[in-house]
């Protein structure tokens, strides 16, 4: 077990430093690069918090859908093969719900401000 503070809290402080103390001192192209850098660190922070839970949920859904066990990559490759062969499609019970849940789990990390994500969350 690692000690406190947890990584997401350390990252939070580092991000706040870059945003509040470093960004205002920059000019030109460096402003853009620093903004993107801060966004990148925020993405990593969300991933640290959210991915353990979403990976477990995704694996659970994939195992039920495919009737087999394995790591996430193996299961996703198996799903791709079955979709590509036509064995599974959007009429297959559970497939659309699984793909939608997975896309939302990715976006919660990648881009929670994305318009289609916000709309999907509001309708949930």
């Amino acid at each position: 077990m690692q000690d406190n503070p947890p990584p997401e809290q350390i990252l939070d402080i580092a991000i706040a430093h870059l945003r509040d103390n470093v960004l205002p001192t920059l000019s030109g192209r460096a402003v853009f690069d620093m903004r993107v850098t801060i966004s990148a660190l925020e993405l990593v922070c969300r991933s640290i918090v959210l991915t353990p839970g979403s990976d477990a949920a995704e694996r659970q859904r994939l195992s039920e859908l495919l009737g087999q066990d394995g790591d996430l990559e193996t299961l996703n490759r198996a799903l791709c093969d079955r979709i590509a062969s036509g064995a599974l499609d959007l009429q297959t019970p559970g497939l659309a719900a699984h793909l939608r849940a997975t896309a939302l789990e990715k976006l919660a990390v990648d881009q929670p401000n994305y318009s289609a994500y916000r709309r999907a969350r509001q309708s949930q």
């Binding site: 990148a40 896309a103 990648d110 289609a116």
Partner: peptide, 19 residues
């Protein structure tokens, strides 16, 4: 630095495709 961030925008299109 924007390269990896663009790569992580692929998930946006996954939701758009499902919609």
């Amino acid at each position: 630095i924007d390269r990896p961030m663009i790569a992580r925008r692929a998930s946006e299109t996954e939701l758009d495709l499902l919609d």
